[in-house]
Amino acid sequence: MLEKMGSSERLDAGSEGSGRSAMRERNYRQYCGLASALDAVGDRWTLLVVRELLLGPRRYVELQADLPGIGTNLLAARLKKLRELGLVQRAGLAPHSYHLTAEGERMRDSVLALSRFGMGLLTDPTADVVVRPHWGFLAVAAMADAKRLPELSEAYEFRVDDEVFHLEVRNGNALPARGPAATPAMVATTDAITFVQIGAGLIDPMGAVAAGRLTLTGDPAAAGRCSLVLGLAKPTQQS
């Protein structure tokens, strides 16, 4: 098999082994925008590092904790390359903290689009997989389309395990963020697996409520509007 691989692919085949080998780069040598993007961020773990920064700055130890399976040398190598590309930089005076640059933020829509695509591929989790609450919330960010209710102005709060997030819908924009909402119209409380499964369409929100896996408080009508913004309900289903 290796004999049939190009030289650039052979270099990448061992990239998981150490920080030194991880710095060897794949290059498709194709004059194509997609190939160029994959040359830059197509290595394993790179887009998951970007995912971890979509909700704001993260410390190195937080990145390592939320990327189970990545070695510290490989994480350092991925961050180094992202910094060299101008996509990530250190966050102010905080030690070993990183955030996306303005150029890195340009990847947001593409990464969320990939997340939407991947949500459709999910099945029920096996015992050996891990899940984090903010991964589920990023699915919410990927699903949200405030243009479904362009006149709407309200916020929804999501309490997932021990983390809190909110989605503010205003002026046709959906703005996801960590932390509680100032005045949430609806509060949803659940666990990370249920949160992801609702987003993946594996369980209906009302089915999760009936099963005791999801609790909704606040304005009952707001739950319907939230479902519509997230594409979990159709306009004809709303009263």
Rank of each mutant, 00 (worst) to 15 (best):
P184E: 07
L202K: 08
A233H: 06
C226F: 15
G42C: 01
S36D: 12
F137C: 00
G231F: 07
A142I: 03
K80N: 13
R170M: 11
S15P: 01
L152R: 15
P57C: 03
V169E: 12
V196P: 08
R83Q: 12
T217L: 00
H134N: 05
G6I: 08
D109I: 01
A76M: 15
R59C: 05
D145I: 08
P150E: 10
S153F: 13
L2N: 03
S8R: 12
R225Q: 10
T194F: 13
I203D: 08
A233L: 13
D124E: 15
A76G: 14
S239P: 15
P180L: 05
E105L: 03
R78T: 06
G218K: 00
K234R: 14
E52V: 02
A139C: 08
T72L: 02
E154M: 13
P176L: 06
L122Y: 12
P205V: 13
A35C: 08
K147M: 10
T189E: 14
Y28V: 02
L167T: 06
L63H: 01
T236Y: 10
A77Y: 05
A223N: 08
V111E: 03
A102G: 04
A35W: 05
T101G: 03
V196T: 13
L175E: 10
H166D: 08
A181H: 01
F117Y: 14
A127N: 08
L48T: 02
P205A: 14
K4I: 09
L138C: 04
K147V: 06
Q64P: 03
T194Y: 12
D219W: 07
G179F: 07
L112K: 04
S15G: 01
L34K: 06
L11G: 11
M206P: 00
D39Q: 05
A76D: 15
Q89K: 11
G179T: 12
K234S: 14
L53W: 02
T46V: 10
F137I: 01
W135Y: 11
K81F: 09
